[in-house]
């Protein structure tokens, strides 16, 4: 191997606002670094080929697939996972709406769903249900049938935009 190629990589980045320094195998993807090295098990590995969205986390403010990103590529990045987003309160309204509307069953997809939903509801506008469905279409949920998730996100988007929620009627 050429001396320029490394099999282990030294990294410095921030996770949930905390500085992290660690050395990881070069082939280790972000989701494994979060789960195995940093013990942040809230995000899940569902398919490891970029389709299911369970490993979706925020890198520099944007959603990424934790399984399609090598940790080695993230030197200097700012990473947020469900643990940090919970502690900061950034998605408290989304989380409350998911619980209220029962927009989760087994909960395995939920941290990824919340990460994807976060970037939609913080746009400030109220997306149509079709737009919510389209935006969330990269996150697989086997349990809910999606409607409750769409409802919860719609409620939060409307509340954030100061528009009255209209889907609470489904919660009897």
């Amino acid at each position: 191997m050429s001396e320029h190629f490394r099999s282990r990589i030294d990294l410095e980045f921030t996770v949930n606002g905390e500085a992290v320094e660690l050395t990881v195998p070069a082939g280790r993807h972000l989701i494994d670094v979060l789960r195995l090295d940093l013990e942040l098990t809230g995000s899940h590995a569902g398919c490891e080929h970029g389709v299911c969205g369970a490993c979706t986390v925020l890198v520099d403010g944007q959603t990424v697939r934790g399984c399609l990103t090598l940790a080695a590529q993230l030197d200097g990045a700012e990473i947020w996972t469900v643990e940090g987003l919970t502690e900061s309160g950034a998605i408290a309204d989304l989380q409350a709406a998911f619980v209220e509307r029962n927009a989760l069953q087994c909960g395995y997809c939920t941290p990824g769903m919340l990460a994807s939903a976060k970037t939609l509801v913080e746009s400030g506008s109220v997306p149509s249900r079709e737009a919510i469905r389209e935006h969330m279409s990269g996150n697989y949920c086997r349990c809910t049938g999606y409607e409750a998730i769409v409802d919860a996100i719609e409620t939060v988007a409307r509340t954030r935009a100061g528009v009255e929620a209209r889907v609470e009627a489904k919660v009897r």
Partner: peptide, 11 residues
């Protein structure tokens, strides 16, 4: 399903 790579370098 873990990626098996020979090495990594940042250009």
């Amino acid at each position: 399903m873990k990626a098996s790579i020979g090495g990594y370098a940042r250009a």
